[in-house]
Amino acid sequence: METLGILGATFGAALAVIGAAFGIGKIGKAAMEAIGRQPEAADKVRTTMIIVAALIEGVALFAVAVCFMAL
């Protein structure tokens, strides 16, 4: 039973990572495109990108924390 729990926790972490990676990847893509289109706004775009990425990461970290608790 405990092995199953560990398995579930690791799977959960993996899923959280996939989701976060997907989301942050999309943000990075959008930010790169925005900077490419408007290089003069690079600073603002970067700041906003980090903030949004941090929000997504926050959610993913919640998931990882939950997985940690299940471990």
Binding site: A54, L55, E57, G58, V59, L61, F62, V64, A65
Partner: peptide, 13 residues
């Protein structure tokens, strides 16, 4: 509460 919680977990992790 989730905002500082995310701060905590992010840095730690």
């Amino acid at each position: 509460f989730t905002k500082p919680f995310a701060l905590m977990i992010r840095l730690f992790a």
